[in-house]
Design a protein around this nucleic acid. Structure first.
Length: 676
RNA sequence: GGCGAUGUAGCUCAGUCGGUUAGAGCAUCGGAAUCAUAAUCCGAGUGUCCGGGGUUCGAAUCCCUGCAUCGCUACCA
């Protein structure tokens, strides 16, 4: 059988912070499991990754800590790598994007796209700090939010109201490094012309019938709503210089160069193993299956932008074969939040646990089709019952029993009964199913089937009561031990991708002379042809005690700032209701808002005060018919700017589908009257 | 507002192409067993399959509609 060839990548982790369980569950563990599975099958597979090391957040952090960016990057590269090592996630190469190979290749990518007419420049206005002598990227600016007017809004987003902001909209902007007021200045940047790839992308994606539903639907929607040009350069010092003229102080945007890291890391690997041309066997061979493991936030980059970048090259790079994006992992019902330190950090985890329970729990509870929840108590129970009790105890009771009664072996039987033959066939069917599950990224189900197999082992053991038959019928007891041994041999291999270290430990107890990888999945298809010589029997899985789990739960509880996941409408107190200033107001003027077909600009009077309101009712009411009407408003809603117009209160109306009706008092009542 | 996803036992979820009495694990209760890490095995369950309509001999499954939750998004305010 011809070997299949796989090039597997996981999203490059950003080198300004540590890894937490969400990262692992989404992109790294599923990839590691897939890669290990392919290695068991004997296929040609390499797993490539590295840290993403450029961009504004890193350079800001560097300035804040008064160190060169390189220092930040080195620190986190190291910490991230050690987290992966601790979790037994093994790459063929783990590189970084601030290396020479990567610079050269990224610049080539830009040049090819430019030469082939896929890049053009646009000029727009940006904030410029005269004191620091540079354009300020979004996150280098803070100021007053133009929507909610809270202080300290960043140039890209306001943390207080969550709105996305264009930095030049900020009121009273300040440069975060020198606290001086920036000016507005024009700048030119380079844009990738995505619309040119639209048709090609559409066809390509439609051909991907086997892709996960959620991924495909998401992209087709994106394409349907039309692609836009995207800036691929930034005014920043920390990054890869733009390889063309008049580009001082401009670098390639991180999202543009980061995925190129998949290639440059492969090149680095080739050089390391002394075969500098080897990377071409993967990236230019259309038989290679390129698989990108990512979180769902990364779908557009890996299915639209990155393939477009590859299509626009002179060299014929392969395109992604599959992009099995995962959903998110929540933590104890809440969203993981790095900024609020609400997370389980891998490095911290590894101080108290081995990698085994986490790998198992995240595999069994992987967010494959929908968001899932990490619950410490569940983590403990899942591990203790599935692995320690069901799996571990089965192995232990079989090995101890056979060790004692059959001279430290699991013997070969002289003949096998029909019933037992049937069981062996059954086992091989299950193994085949598990194989299919791994191949199609369904690790949750694979976990379940594996534990089911261990459970079947226990049932078989109990039903055949060897502790009794050994006294009367040694032959048939030997035969049933053999069956149990076959189950264990299968278990050791099929669990390998998920918890390799336990699998190897078990393999050692079974005393096979070939390593588990050499023996491989195919070694399973043959029946054992010599007795298993049982080695030292060790406890395969130590149970996790309650107090250890309680400590973890308390760690999270002690945070004062737990992010809320639920945004739904809750019961509110009367006190809260009283905060609303609901009043009757008279419309004294009305006109359409320019460049908006649903919005009306209304002048209203509330007693002696007049205010302006922007209301989305133009489809249902004409300006004329509104004048003179008494309507209900929420008077003390925070002001906002809509389509450049100020809105100082909110008009209340009821809707039913297309139907919209103003709320008008049933009797004559003076304007300014309050709702009670 | 638009697009998408989800809703099944106390909890976590499976349920293929529409097909018998709707399943598994955990938790609970009862029992068996003593080879084993007090682990294991057997048995008992409990269901408005989110609500309402429809198609069909037959619907958890297909169609329509409503509700709830989540995500993305918009000219919500």
């Amino acid at each position: 059988m011809a070997k299949e060839k796989y090039l597997v990548t996981s999203a490059l982790p950003y080198a300004n912070g540590d890894l937490h369980i969400g990262h692992i569950a989404g992109a790294y563990l599923p990839a590691d499991i897939f890669v290990r599975f392919q290695k068991l099958l004997g296929n040609d597979v390499i797993y490539i990754c590295g840290t993403d090391e450029h961009g504004a957040p890193i350079s800001i952090k560097a300035e804040q800590e008064n160190v060169p960016p390189r220092k930040i990057v080195d620190k986190y590269h190291k910490r991230i790598k050690s987290a992966f090592d601790g979790l037994d996630i093994q790459f063929e190469n783990f590189s970084g994007t601030d290396r020479k190979v990567h610079y050269k290749l990224s610049q080539n990518f830009f040049s090819d796209l430019n030469k082939n007419g896929f890049i053009q420049t646009h000029t727009n206005e940006q904030l410029y700090c005269e004191n620091c002598n540079r354009f300020l990227p979004d996150r280098y600016v803070e100021g007053e939010c133009p929507f909610c007017h809270s202080e300290g809004a960043r140039g890209d987003q306001c943390d207080s109201c969550g709105k996305l902001i264009d930095a030049i909209q900020l009121t009273n902007p300040l440069c975060i490094t020198c606290r001086s007021t920036p000016i507005i200045r024009e700048t030119t940047n380079w844009f990738l012309n995505l619309p040119k790839f639209s048709d090609k992308l559409q066809k390509w994606i439609e051909s991907k019938t086997e892709w996960k539903d959620n991924v495909k639907k998401f992209i087709l929607n994106w394409l349907k709503s039309g692609l836009k040009e995207r800036a691929i350069t930034r005014d920043l010092n920390w990054g890869i210089p733009v390889p063309t003229e008049n580009t001082d102080g401009k670098v390639l945007y991180v999202w543009f160069e980061a995925p190129i890291g998949y290639i440059s890391s492969t090149i680095e690997w080739s050089e390391k193993i002394g075969k500098p041309e080897k990377w071409r066997d993967y990236w230019f061979d259309k038989n290679t299956k390129l698989i990108h493991f990512i979180g769902k936030d990364n779908i557009p980059f890996h299915t639209i932008i990155w393939p477009a970048m590859l299509m626009g090259q002179d060299k014929k790079y392969i395109l992604p074969d599959d992009v099995p994006a995962n959903e998110y992992l929540n933590l104890e019902k809440n969203k993981i939040s790095t900024s609020k330190n609400y997370a389980v950090w891998i490095n911290e985890y590894l101080e108290e646990f081995s990698e085994i329970p986490l790998r198992y729990y995240l595999a069994a509870n992987a967010p494959e089709n929908k968001d899932t929840d990490f619950v410490w108590k569940e983590f403990q129970e899942k591990y203790n019952t599935d692995l320690a009790n069901t799996f571990g105890n089965f192995v232990n009771r079989v090995l101890k029993f056979s060790d004692k009664h059959f001279e430290h072996t699991i013997p070969l039987p002289q003949k096998i009964s029909n019933k037992n033959e049937e069981i062996l066939t059954n086992i091989s069917d299950i193994r085949e199913k598990i194989k299919q599950l791994y191949q199609t990224f369904k690790v949750r189900k694979a976990c379940k089937m594996i534990i089911d197999l261990a459970r079947f082992g226990n049932q078989y053991f109990d039903n055949t009561i060897p502790w009794k038959t050994i006294k009367t019928d040694r032959k048939s007891t030997a035969e049933m031990m053999f069956i149990c041994g076959e189950i264990i041999r299968n278990l050791a291999i099929v669990i390998y991708p998920i918890i390799p270290s336990s699998s190897k430990k078990l393999w050692k107890m079974l005393g096979f002379d070939k390593s588990i990888l050499k023996y491989g999945w195919n070694g399973l298809s043959a029946k054992s042809d010599k007795p298993i010589i049982i080695q030292n029997i060790e406890t395969l899985f130590e149970k996790i005690p309650d107090d250890l789990i309680e400590r973890q739960v308390n760690k999270l509880k002690n945070l004062n700032n737990i992010p809320q996941k639920t945004s739904g409408k809750k019961i509110i107190s009367f006190e809260t209701f009283q905060k609303l200033d609901l009043r009757i107001a008279k419309i004294i003027a009305a006109e359409k808002v320019k460049k908006a077909d649903k919005l009306l600009k209304l002048q209203i009077s509330i007693g002696s005060i007049t205010k302006q309101i922007i209301a989305g009712i133009a489809k249902n009411y004409s300006p004329k018919e509104l004048i003179g009407k008494n309507i209900l408003i929420l008077n003390n809603l925070e002001p906002a700017i809509i389509k450049g117009e100020k809105s100082e209160a909110m008009l209340l109306a009821v809707v039913d589908g297309e139907n919209l009706s103003l709320l008008i008092p049933e009797k004559e009542i003076p304007e300014g009257s309050k709702v009670l």
